[in-house]
Amino acid sequence: MPSPRPRSTAVPVVLCALAVLAARPSSSPDPGGPAEEVARLYEAAADAARQYEDGRRAAEEQRAKARRYEERLDRQRVRSAALHEDLGRLARAQYRGGGGLPLAAGMVLADDPDALMRGQRIAHRTDLAVDKAVTESRRAEERLGADQAEATAAWKALEKRNARLAELKKEIEADLRTARSRLEGRADASVTAGSGPGAARTGAPERRSGRTWVLPVESYELSASFGSGGARWAHRHTGQDFAVPVGTPVRAVGAGSVVAVSCGGPFGIQVVLRHADGYYTQYAHLASVAVDQGDRAGAGQRIGQSGSTGNSTGPHLHFEVRVTPEPGSAVDPVPWLSRRGVSV
């Protein structure tokens, strides 16, 4: 994607590629370099975002659980009140029916002592049943109250944790913006001077996708597509652009060997891979690289960080698929990826 910003292209690409390899550390990472810092902060920000989203979902689940318990507790309280009313109604009925008299006196005064006894037994069983139901209802109410209190406490604790995570996420993102600015400045200076990016490797093992083919970046917005016309290109746009912030990990779409790592020219800092099926993929406008010419890269392996080097209107990855390693043989990368099971 061309840009109105003038960029120096006076240094030959071959010399620039040699400078890339000479500038990169051979074994140990550069812990103070902006590429390393951006990679570390990018992962930290992603991890904080994942934890925040997990915590937010957990808090929503606990809040919903607390609400369900509260609704059940309200219904249980209504049942308990009804049972208490039934028990009171029974007591009042017994009193009006002579239930307050001693049983012996009631039998003397009754016209049918046997009927009186049967009535007493029925009333007693009814009284016991209602009393038992009231006791069980009270216990159920207590259990629901305890469950509701526990769910509410868990929800409140998660809300506090999420508030702390949100603050941490903001702090990391602020640090990441600063580090991205430093990385972009270093990349621009490197390309202008023809000294190459000098990208650092991280100490952590490379993350592989477990799939044969993947997207070159994980989160993006599509910008210029293959074949687009405009004043920015001499003819037509030869790749698919993925708009991403500076420092976004750029990954090999499939297993392949690194045939070119270079800087300078309209593509800025770039990596070209050759795949087993004979196709080549190009990753351009990078801010840093994480591979050397001759390296093997697996599908999903980080090979660099996105940037805005070369003729670029803003931070993005220019991704191109070719039938040769050189420009001029590009094919549309979207259907090419689609035939390999990757949707853009």
Rank of each mutant, 00 (worst) to 15 (best):
P2F: 10
P6Q: 07
V14L: 15
A17F: 01
A23F: 02
E36V: 01
Y42I: 00
A59Y: 04
A59S: 13
E61V: 14
R63V: 08
K65C: 15
Y69W: 05
E70D: 14
E71I: 11
D74G: 07
A82M: 06
L87K: 06
G88T: 15
R89F: 10
R92H: 09
Y95N: 03
R96W: 07
G97E: 10
L101F: 14
A105V: 01
G106F: 10
L109K: 05
L116Q: 12
M117V: 14
G119K: 11
G119Q: 14
L128W: 14
V130R: 13
S137G: 15
R138E: 11
E142W: 11
G145H: 11
A154C: 08
A154T: 13
K156D: 13
L165C: 02
L165F: 01
K169F: 04
S181H: 09
R182K: 10
L183P: 06
D188A: 11
A189M: 06
A193L: 10
A204T: 07
P205A: 08
S219V: 13
S225I: 05
A231G: 06
A234R: 09
R236K: 12
Q240M: 06
Q240T: 13
V244G: 03
G247I: 01
P249T: 01
G254S: 13
S257W: 00
V258Q: 04
F267K: 09
F267I: 02
G268L: 02
Q270K: 09
Q270I: 00
L273P: 04
L273M: 05
R274D: 03
A284F: 03
H285N: 13
D292V: 03
G300M: 08
S308M: 06
T309A: 12
P315F: 01
V323M: 09
V323Y: 08
P327H: 06
S329E: 02
S338D: 15
R340D: 06
G341K: 10
V342I: 08
